[in-house]
Structure formats: C-alpha cells, structure tokens
C-alpha cells in the first residue's frame, strides 16, 4: 500500500465512509433479527452470517485485505485450517 497515489487514497477514504455505514446498519440488523424469536438454528445462522459479512468488510477494507499480496492469504488459509481444527477436534474426542 506504500505506492498509493494521492487520488488512490482519496478513493479509499470514500470507501471507508461507505463501509462504516454498512457496519453500523448491520449491527442494528443483527440486534433486530435476534428479537424475531427465530428457531435456534436459524438464529445462529443469521447471527453468524451477519458477523461474517461485517468481519469481511473490516478485513477487506480497513485491513486492506482486498488489495493484499498472495503470501498473506496463504498465511490466513493455514490460520483458518488450524482454527477449524481447534473447533472440530475437541468435539470429536
């Protein structure tokens, strides 16, 4: 990101405002959905789906992951695998 032009960073700044609005709206949506008294499975699915969308926005734009090099994705791929192992292995034993 060090080779960003002046115009490039201005476009980024505009995107940050949009991402902020989306995150704020999704926060309110997730609270509203939790008041719907959905069946437990759907409540979990909805809450996690919204959280994943919000997390993707933060990682993609604020952490510049949408414009990042391959090496970071390789690192994150393995992180994700080990994270899944942490979740699944204890349940199997």
């Amino acid at each position: 990101m060090s080779a960003l032009s002046h115009g490039g960073i201005r476009r980024h700044v505009r995107s940050y405002i949009g991402v902020f609005a989306a995150l704020a709206v999704l926060t309110l949506v997730t609270v509203a959905v939790s008041n719907l008294r959905l069946a437990f499975f759907f409540a979990i699915a909805a809450a996690l789906l919204i959280a994943v969308v919000k997390a993707s926005l933060v990682a993609g734009f604020f952490m510049h992951l949408a414009f990042e090099r391959v090496i970071i994705f390789v690192l994150l791929f393995f992180t994700f695998l080990f994270f899944l192992a942490l979740l699944i292995l204890p349940a199997l034993s």
């Binding site: 939790s34 409540a43 809450a47 919000k54 990682a59």
Partner: peptide
C-alpha cells in the same frame, strides 16, 4: 501506523463475533 491499525481492526473483528455470540444468542 498501518501495522498498529491491523492490530486495532483485529480487536474490532473479535468483538464483531463476541457481541452476537455472547449477547444475542
């Protein structure tokens, strides 16, 4: 500052999951 930002956004990201998991479900 970019690296300090990566950490700060990560902490935000953790909260994005903690909030629904602990408070809403």
């Amino acid at each position: 500052i970019e690296c300090a930002g990566l950490y700060w956004h990560f902490v935000d990201l953790v909260w994005i999951f903690l909030f629904p998991v602990l408070y809403l479900l």
